[in-house]
C-alpha cells in the first residue's frame, strides 16, 4: 500500500516538473459569465471602457433603450447606395404581418433593453437572448469560421477566444438586418468583434461591440453595452412574437 502511494506521489511530482520544464501552465481559470443578465444598457460614467477605440471607428450612442432618430446614423459614414435605401425606408413598412416578427441580427439585438442568459462551457458558450428568442453559440474549441458558402443567419457564426480575462468573439455569416433601427441595414458581409469582461465585483458584464461592413460603411461602428447580474433564480421569458400585432397598424 505504502509503495503504491509513494509511486503515485512521484508520478504527480514528475508531471508537475514536466509542465514546469516545458514552460507550460495549467489551464487558466477564466471568468464565469454564466447567469442571468438584466436588460442591456449604456455604460455609466463610472464604468471605464477597455482601451481606446480603433481608428476610423465611431461610437454609437444608442445602447440600451435610446434610439437614434430618423435620418441620424450616429456618425457612421454610409455609402451612397445604402444611404439612399436608408432614407427611403419608412417605419410603417416594418409594421406588416410578414415583417413585424423578423428578428434583428445580433448587431442590433445585443444592445437592446432585454435580458439574456449565458451558459458557459469550455467547448462553447451559449447566449440566450430574450429578444426574439435568439440563441447564440460561441465556439471556443479553436475551429475556423464556416466556409463562405454556409448560410447566413441573424446570429451568424461566432468563434471565441480568451485574452486574459476578456472574452473576444468574432462573428461572421450574419444576414442583412438593421444596424440602428431607423432604416440603415448592414449587409451579409458585416463582421462583428465583441469583447466581454466583468466588473471587479463580478456584478456587471460589459462589452465593446465593433462592426465593419465595407459594402455599406466607410468607417466602423462601435457600442459599449453593460448588463447587471440578476439573481440565481431569474430567467428569461419566451418572446414568441405574434405577427397579428401588425394588424393594429394596418387598422389605423
Amino acid at each position: 500500500m505504502m509503495a503504491r502511494v509513494t509511486t503515485l506521489v512521484l508520478l504527480v511530482i514528475l508531471a508537475a516538473w514536466t509542465l514546469v520544464a516545458q514552460g507550460q501552465q495549467p489551464p487558466a481559470k477564466h471568468p464565469n459569465f454564466s447567469g442571468y443578465w438584466s436588460a442591456g444598457r449604456a455604460f455609466r460614467a463610472s464604468e471605464a471602457p477597455q482601451g481606446p477605440l480603433p481608428p476610423n471607428t465611431v461610437l454609437l450612442a444608442d445602447a440600451g433603450a435610446p434610439e437614434l432618430p430618423s435620418g441620424n446614423f450616429g456618425g457612421l459614414k454610409v455609402k451612397a447606395a445604402a444611404l439612399a435605401a436608408a432614407m427611403r425606408w419608412k417605419p410603417q413598412d416594418e409594421m406588416s404581418i410578414s415583417r413585424v416578427c423578423l428578428p434583428p441580427s445580433i448587431v442590433y439585438s445585443m444592445q437592446g433593453p432585454f435580458p439574456m442568459e449565458i451558459h458557459q462551457g469550455t467547448e462553447f458558450i451559449v447566449i440566450r437572448l430574450e429578444y426574439y428568442d435568439l440563441v447564440r453559440i460561441i465556439f471556443m474549441d479553436g475551429r475556423p469560421h464556416l466556409p463562405a458558402s454556409a448560410p447566413h443567419t441573424k446570429v451568424g457564426d461566432s468563434v471565441g477566444r480568451w485574452e486574459g480575462n476578456t472574452l473576444v468573439v468574432d462573428t461572421t455569416h450574419l444576414s442583412e438586418s438593421t444596424i440602428t433601427n431607423n432604416g440603415l441595414n448592414h449587409s451579409d458581409n458585416v463582421r462583428m468583434i465583441e469583447r466581454f469582461w466583468l466588473s471587479g465585483d463580478g456584478k456587471t458584464l460589459m462589452a465593446r461591440q465593433e462592426f465593419e461592413d465595407p459594402e455599406v460603411l466607410d468607417n466602423r461602428g462601435a457600442r459599449y453595452v453593460a448588463w447587471d447580474r440578476g439573481a440565481a433564480n431569474d430567467h428569461i421569458f419566451p418572446y414568441e412574437c405574434d405577427p397579428s400585432f401588425a394588424a393594429n397598424y394596418q387598422a389605423k
Binding site: A65, E67, P69, S70, P91, E94, M95, V100, G112, P113, F114, Y131, N181, N182, Y239, E240, C241, D242, S244, F245
Partner: peptide, 28 residues
C-alpha cells in the same frame, strides 16, 4: 427596441384616457 417609438408616438405629450376594456391581447 422593436420599432421606432419616436416615429409613431408624440414623445412630447402625455395623455390620459378613461374607458371600458373590450379586449386585452397579451403577446409580444
Amino acid at each position: 427596441a422593436h420599432h421606432s417609438f419616436a416615429v409613431f408616438f408624440d414623445d412630447q405629450t402625455i395623455i390620459e384616457v378613461t374607458g371600458s376594456v373590450t379586449d386585452f391581447h397579451f403577446t409580444n
